[in-house]
Each structure stands twice: as structure tokens, then as C-alpha cells.
Amino acid sequence: MSDQEAKPSTEDLGDKKEGEYIKLKVIGQDSSEIHFKVKMTTHLKKLKESYCQRQGVPMNSLRFLFEGQRIADNHTPKELGMEEEDVIEVYQEQTGGHSTV
């Protein structure tokens, strides 16, 4: 019986991991920090939209990076291997420009 009891508790931990929340720091170019608590399985588009709304800027005017890689709207913290207190960097999107060649 103890084996049966242990097995469901392991499964519960697996389920808990799926719905687990982590805190992420979003740091802007001006070094301002906003902290977000997100589920591991939530699409990061929600975090990006919330950040842009707080900053009063359109979402397409900023780019969000985690460990140097651009974050897509459909990425989740779990897919990117994010952990508690990880940092997302935000930069002004640069458009235009010309070749110097």
C-alpha cells in the first residue's frame, strides 16, 4: 500500500510543476525593474502585453530577450528553461537604418 501512496504523490508533484508559478524580473533599458509572477505554462505574450500596457507603449515597439534570445509570443517559461528570479531584458525595437557599404 505504501507504494501506491507514494506513486500518486509523485504524480501530484509532476502536476504541481506544470502549474507552478515563478517570479520573473523584467528590466528596461533605463534599468527599471518590474516583477511578474507567471505560470510555467503561460505564453509569455501575456507578460509582454502587461509590461507594455504599464509602460504605455505599443508591444511592437519593444523586444524582449532572455539569455540573449528573442522571446516569441508563444514561448512559455518552461520551454525556455526559466527559473525563479530570472531576468528578461527589454530593448527599444530598432527599425529602419541603412547599409554603410
Rank of each mutant, 00 (worst) to 15 (best):
S2L: 12
D3F: 05
Q4W: 07
Q4F: 14
Q4P: 10
Q4K: 09
E5F: 10
E5L: 10
E5M: 14
A6E: 08
K7P: 10
K7A: 08
P8K: 05
T10A: 12
E11S: 10
D12S: 12
D12Y: 10
G14I: 09
G14N: 13
D15V: 12
D15R: 12
G19M: 15
E20S: 14
I22T: 14
I22M: 12
K23A: 09
L24S: 00
L24Q: 04
V26Y: 02
V26R: 05
V26W: 02
G28S: 15
G28Y: 00
D30I: 02
S31H: 00
S31W: 15
S31D: 00
S32M: 08
F36T: 00
F36S: 03
F36M: 00
K39L: 07
H43E: 13
L44A: 01
L44Y: 06
K46V: 09
L47M: 08
L47Y: 04
E49M: 09
S50R: 15
Y51N: 05
C52G: 03
C52K: 00
R54W: 00
Q55I: 15
Q55A: 10
Q55V: 15
G56N: 09
V57K: 10
M59K: 14
M59E: 11
M59R: 11
S61E: 04
R63S: 07
F64S: 03
F64E: 00
L65E: 02
L65W: 00
E67G: 10
G68D: 05
Q69H: 07
I71D: 04
I71F: 00
A72R: 12
A72G: 14
D73R: 01
D73I: 01
N74T: 11
N74C: 14
T76D: 01
P77S: 03
K78H: 08
K78A: 10
E79G: 12
L80P: 01
L80N: 00
G81L: 12
G81N: 02
E83R: 12
E83A: 14
E85R: 14
E85M: 15
E85P: 00
E89H: 04
V90M: 06
Y91N: 05
Y91F: 10
Y91R: 07
Q92E: 08
Q92H: 09
Q92N: 06
Q92L: 07
G96E: 02
G96T: 03
G97Y: 03
